[in-house]
């Protein structure tokens, strides 16, 4: 009940905000469950200036999509509230997408960790990883596969967080031997982290705190925090999560 009240207050706050994006998109609808979904297409066609709900020190990312590109702004404080990685002493961030790599490196700083961000050239990235004696990795599937010779040739890491939109867990299972903990983090550039699961053949996904997931034909995501561009009933193209019952 309290959650529902908080959600109603959150929706009301967005309704009353100067930024017109959601107000115009929702019309007069006030109830969360009845709010029209918002899609990436809506972000693509709406300038950031019309969907900016707060003004803080922030990182601006470019999100490339086959249909075009749009800006996704994340305040550093909000970046820190995402659940991208696990506590570590010497984390390395090695991601295919450079905007995401910078953002996840800033996540490390927000958590008091000094990160090594991987350079694009694999040889330089692994050379630096050896020198820094990294103890954890924040990466994505394709980058992890490139790093496999390095992780195979060293002692186990404390943790590997594999970020992505889709996973083939069975193809990743063997990475379990390279770290004490390997987790999958479902994330989109514009929504941040959505759900996480320990690496397994059939991962048991859990929605991350502050995330409301609705299993419809595709996964609907709501973040219960006022982000620069809030995420409310955001229709992803991700399939529903099997283990998640969709309850609010």
């Amino acid at each position: 009940m309290e959650d529902q009240e908080n959600l109603d207050t959150f929706i009301q706050r967005i309704h009353q905000h100067d930024a017109p994006f959601y107000r115009e998109h929702w019309g007069g609808v006030q109830k969360f469950a009845e709010l029209p979904v918002v899609t990436r297409e809506d972000f693509l066609k709406t300038p950031l200036s019309l969907r900016r709900y707060k003004d803080e020190k922030a990182l601006i990312k470019i999100v490339h999509d086959p249909a075009g590109a749009f800006l996704s702004e994340w305040s550093f404080v909000d970046i820190g509230r995402e659940a991208y990685g696990l506590p570590a002493r010497r984390p390395m961030v090695f991601l295919e997408n450079p905007h995401e790599a910078i953002e996840k490196s800033m996540w490390c700083y927000e958590h008091g960790m000094l990160p090594l961000v991987g350079e694009k050239t694999l040889e330089i990235a692994t050379y630096a990883a050896e020198k820094y004696k990294i103890d954890s990795l924040i990466t994505d599937t394709s980058s992890l596969i490139k790093l496999e010779p390095y992780v195979r040739g060293r002692g186990p890491l404390d943790s590997i967080s594999i970020l992505g939109e889709r996973f083939e867990p069975k193809e990743l299972l063997h990475f379990g031997q390279y770290a004490r903990q390997v987790r999958l983090v479902l994330a989109l550039p514009e929504t941040g982290a959505i759900a996480a699961a320990a690496l397994a053949a059939e991962p048991r996904w859990e929605a991350l705190p502050d995330c409301i997931l609705e299993n419809t034909e595709t996964l609907l995501v709501t973040k219960k925090r006022l982000l620069v561009t809030p995420i409310v009933r955001y229709q992803t193209t991700l399939p529903p999560l099997n283990n998640y019952d969709g309850a609010l």
């Binding site: 003004d55 020190k57 922030a58 990182l59 490339h64 800006l71």
Partner: peptide, 15 residues
Amino acid sequence: VLQTLALDPQDLVGD
């Protein structure tokens, strides 16, 4: 307030 867009060479496209 300081907002930063850190461009990558691959961003240098029509959009």
